[in-house]
């Protein structure tokens, strides 16, 4: 066990870890300047943030609950990125996972069945972009953006049409109590968080300890060499879309099945929108490493969970908090960008 522990450490780029931590710190610093510029006290604001996110059981529970869906959508992005694919289709698979949970738990009120079908639909929704990429050379950014909209309107139709709740037209049918994810202790946090962490660890295992994952990473870094090594890059790409779709589908299903008190998709899909995109940011901060993503997601969850108290105690508007989040994402991107430029220059020199 000790040996595999050191293996995990080796898969993590220590320099990247330190850079990410520094970037978060710098992000907070710039955030503080922004707060000052708008006349808010950074100390009060930040202490309200940490108070709200970590100061109580409820706070911690809400931090972790917020982190769950974006952890999974971040895995979608990261798994594809490791395979050399810029997959921003997590959003669409997330919708399908959510609606799958609604549809199938109302057929059979079993939690595992609901999660399973969420993953299946999520994975299936990954396939069109995968096939377009592999067999027609359509760039995945274009196809996934368009497919996200197709998913949006199709699921929206299901939400307001066939699966609208006859008793509460603002929502879809609710997840039957027998299929809801159990809550942990006396909180609103469901076991969804634990499943998400497990999914991240599993993703790590797939990428770094299986032949499939080896092939995916090889294809991502150098498709030509991968082919030479007997790997089929096209297959690796399809697998990355499938596994990625599973993660987001699971995220969507758990968002609905594991979040009291709603247990349904709300009107306009407000409670399922945007998690796929947030996941990109999380993956970026987590440097596309599944284990980094666990912490990055919790960090994002903290910012979200701390928001109410920041608004109440420090009177900071939501927008400013979003600004700080944005600043952190950008500062974290800077080391990567720096590497890129440095490499370009040294290549020219040598």
């Amino acid at each position: 066990m000790k040996k595999s522990g050191s293996d995990i450490l080796k898969s993590i780029n220590l320099k990247a870890l330190i850079e990410s931590l520094i970037a978060i710190f710098v992000g907070f610093l710039i955030g503080a300047i922004v707060l000052l510029a708008f006349g808010y006290d950074p100390v009060t604001t930040y202490s309200a943030l940490f108070q709200g996110a970590l100061g109580s059981t409820t706070g911690i529970a809400s931090t972790l609950a917020y982190s769950t869906p974006i952890m999974l959508t971040a895995l979608t992005f990261a798994i594809s990125a490791r395979t050399g694919i810029f997959n921003i289709g997590a959003e669409g698979s997330f919708y399908f996972g959510a609606i799958a949970a609604v549809i199938f738990t109302n057929i059979w009120g079993n939690m595992w069945f609901g999660l399973f079908m969420g993953m299946v639909l999520g994975a299936l929704w990954g396939l069109p972009a995968a096939f377009l990429k592999v067999y027609r050379g359509v760039h995945e950014v274009i196809s996934t953006i368009m497919l996200n909209w197709i998913a949006w309107f199709f699921v929206l139709w299901l939400v307001v049409g066939p699966y609208a709740n006859p008793n509460d037209p603002n929502k879809t049918l609710r997840i039957p109590p027998s299929a809801r994810l159990p809550l942990i202790g006396n909180t609103n946090l469901s076991i969804a968080f634990i499943i998400a962490v497990f999914a991240a660890v599993l993703s790590y295992y797939i990428l770094w300890h299986t032949i499939l994952g080896y092939g995916m990473r090889a294809s991502g870094l150098n498709p030509r060499a991968a082919e030479y090594g007997g790997i089929k890059p096209k297959q690796a790409i399809i697998w990355s879309f499938i596994i990625g779709g599973i993660m987001s589908g699971l995220g969507g299903a758990m968002k609905i099945m594991g979040e009291p008190p709603t247990y349904a998709i709300s009107q306009g899909m407000a409670n399922v929108y945007g998690y796929g995109f947030d996941g990109i940011g999380v993956a970026l901060v987590g440097r596309n490493h599944p284990l980094g993503i666990i912490f990055a997601a919790i960090f994002f969850g903290m910012l979200r969970a701390g928001t109410p108290l920041m608004q109440i105690e420090a009177q900071v508007p939501l927008e400013i908090i979003k600004v700080i989040q944005g600043i952190i994402v950008i500062t974290v991107a800077i080391p990567g960008l720096y590497d890129l430029i440095k490499n370009a220059i040294t290549r020219r020199e040598v």
Binding site: K10, L221, N222, A225
Partner: peptide, 10 residues
């Protein structure tokens, strides 16, 4: 460098 090895791997 383009086929025989994957430079970013160990």
């Amino acid at each position: 460098t383009h086929m025989g090895l994957i430079l970013d791997m160990t």
